[in-house]
Amino acid sequence: MATVNDPREDPRLARLLEAIQSGLPLTPRPYAALGERVGLSEGEVVDTVSRWVREGLIKRLGVVVRHRPLGYRANAMVVWDVPDDRVGDIGRRMSAHEFVTLCYRRPRRGEDWPYNLFCMIHGRDRHSVNAQIELLAEACGLTDTPRAVLFSNRCFKQRGARYLAEVPTGDTRSGRMSPA
């Protein structure tokens, strides 16, 4: 089992991977309950999930909150056109700010899409998010760097990624986000 790199190559691990994506059961022995569903012992589930965490396949294991119901109604994706040889430095500096929830380098697509650095900011309202963007630009030396701010408006779908195409679509959520 330990030699399998891609869990999808072992049917029991593939089933565990599929089962755990929608979350742990809220029962006193969640790993045992998952194991029962996929044909693994409680110990095997704990060991496997521990290994996935250790190997970095799982970035974090815990409570996954939705920001909007908690009053974080403004969400902006901020994209920047920074010099390629500085993108690593700037990205790392950017992601040190706790209000930056994601920070990625992505490819440019010609003149139509010149941005190579993306970050995500969640805030209570647009005013505070805009203030955080200014602060970020100052802190990272990007006040004169071309950028675009894309506030989210409606959410048409939000759920965890599914890595097995045959898994049916689950909790599709849709609703108007406050344009605040």
Partner: peptide
């Protein structure tokens, strides 16, 4: 308020 208690998978690993 919470979508689940569970894993957040790293992108592009699987």
């Amino acid at each position: 308020v919470i979508s689940r208690v569970g894993p957040v998978f790293a992108p592009n690993r699987l």
